[in-house]
C-alpha cells in the first residue's frame, strides 16, 4: 500500500507493532498526542517526551521525538531538569496513574506547586497493567484488582481535584472515546505556561476490564461513551470517579499564574539588578 498513515512520521515505525494489547487505549492516546503536537505551533525538534515505567511508560519509546524512558515514578523530576537546562524545549510527560500518582505522587504535587513549565498527561486505566493488574491510587472503590481480590476499599484520588489543589494552571479530563477533545486539550496544555495536566481515562481490557467484567476494549469504550458527561468548568471536587459511575469530562481549569521560570526571572532581576544574567538555559 503506497498510502502512508500521516501519524507514522511521528512514530518509530521500526518498533511497530507495539507491545500494547488489543483494545488498549494507549495507542489512541498517542494518536491524540500526535494530533495535538501537529497543531501546537512548536517544531517537533523542540518537543521532548518523558515517560516513567509501565505500559504508559512505553509511550516515549514509540514516539519519534527526543524521548526519554526514565525510572518508575520519576519522569516529572527528569522533565524538570530537562526543561530548566533548556527552557526553549516543550517538555511533555506521559505516564500512567500508578507511575505518576503512587510512586511519583510527591513529584507531581511539587511540580504543580512550583508551577514548573511542563505538560503532564496521565493515562488513567485504574491499574498497573505491566505487572499484572494491581491496585493503583485511582482504582475505584469495589473494583477488583490482583492485590485487592475482595474489592478495593481505599479511597482513590480524584486527579483533577488533586491537580487543581496543588496549583496546576490547566486541568482537563477526557476518555479515549473523546479523541478530538483530548487532542485539543493536550494541544492547549502544551501551549500553556506553567504546569498543565490532562487526564485520559483509558481502557485496560486485559487486566482491569476482564477482572471487573467490563468486557473487552470496545465494550469499555462504549461504556465511556454512555457514562460520560461533558461539563466544562466543572467543580473539580465533584468529578471523582466511582466504579462504573458517571465520568465527568471537560476542561475544568484554565487559569493564569506565573510559572517557575517566570518567577525565577522576576525574583533574580529584582535582586541582582544589572548583575543578573538572564537565565536562558545552560548551553
Amino acid at each position: 500500500m503506497s498510502r502512508v498513515n500521516p501519524v507514522n512520521q511521528y512514530l518509530r515505525m521500526d518498533r511497530m507493532p507495539h507491545i500494547w494489547c488489543s483494545g488498549c487505549g494507549l495507542g489512541t492516546t498517542v494518536n491524540c498526542f500526535i494530533r495535538a503536537i501537529e497543531n501546537c505551533g512548536y517544531p517537533r525538534e523542540q518537543i521532548s517526551i518523558v515517560s516513567g515505567i509501565g505500559c504508559t511508560g512505553r509511550v516515549a519509546g514509540y514516539l519519534k521525538l527526543d524521548s526519554f524512558h526514565t525510572t518508575h515514578g520519576r519522569p516529572i523530576p527528569f522533565a524538570t531538569g530537562l526543561k530548566l537546562a533548556n527552557p526553549k524545549l516543550k517538555v511533555v510527560v506521559i505516564s500512567g496513574d500508578g507511575d505518576l500518582f503512587a510512586i511519583g505522587g510527591n513529584h507531581f504535587i511539587h511540580a504543580a506547586r512550583r508551577n514548573m513549565d511542563l505538560t503532564v498527561v496521565c493515562v488513567n486505566n485504574f491499574t498497573y497493567g505491566m505487572t499484572g493488574g494491581q491496585l493503583t491510587p485511582t482504582t475505584p472503590i469495589d473494583a477488583i484488582s490482583s492485590t485487592s481480590p475482595y474489592g478495593n476499599f481505599e479511597e482513590p484520588f480524584n486527579l483533577p481535584f488533586l491537580a487543581e489543589s496543588a496549583g496546576a494552571v490547566y486541568v482537563a479530563r477526557w476518555t479515549t472515546y473523546h479523541v478530538k477533545q483530548a487532542a485539543r486539550s493536550i494541544r492547549e496544555a502544551i501551549q500553556k505556561n506553567g504546569l498543565s495536566f490532562v487526564e485520559i481515562i483509558s481502557p485496560c481490557p486485559t487486566l482491569y476490564g476482564r477482572r471487573n467484567k467490563l468486557g473487552d476494549g470496545l465494550a469499555m469504550m462504549k461504556a465511556f461513551k454512555e457514562n460520560s458527561a461533558i461539563v466544562n468548568g466543572a467543580d473539580t471536587r465533584e468529578v471523582g470517579l466511582d466504579f462504573k459511575g458517571k465520568i465527568v469530562c471537560g476542561k475544568f481549569i484554565d487559569r493564569e499564574k506565573p510559572s517557575f521560570l517566570d518567577m525565577y526571572h522576576t525574583t533574580m532581576a529584582e535582586r541582582f539588578g544589572p548583575f543578573y544574567e538572564p537565565y536562558e538555559g545552560v548551553q
Binding site: P6, P17, G27, T28
Partner: peptide, 15 residues
C-alpha cells in the same frame, strides 16, 4: 480520519 484517531495500532486512517 476518526478511524485513524481511534485506532490504537496506527493500522487505519482516512483521508
Amino acid at each position: 480520519d476518526l478511524c485513524g484517531a481511534y485506532c490504537p495500532d496506527f493500522a487505519i486512517f482516512g483521508m
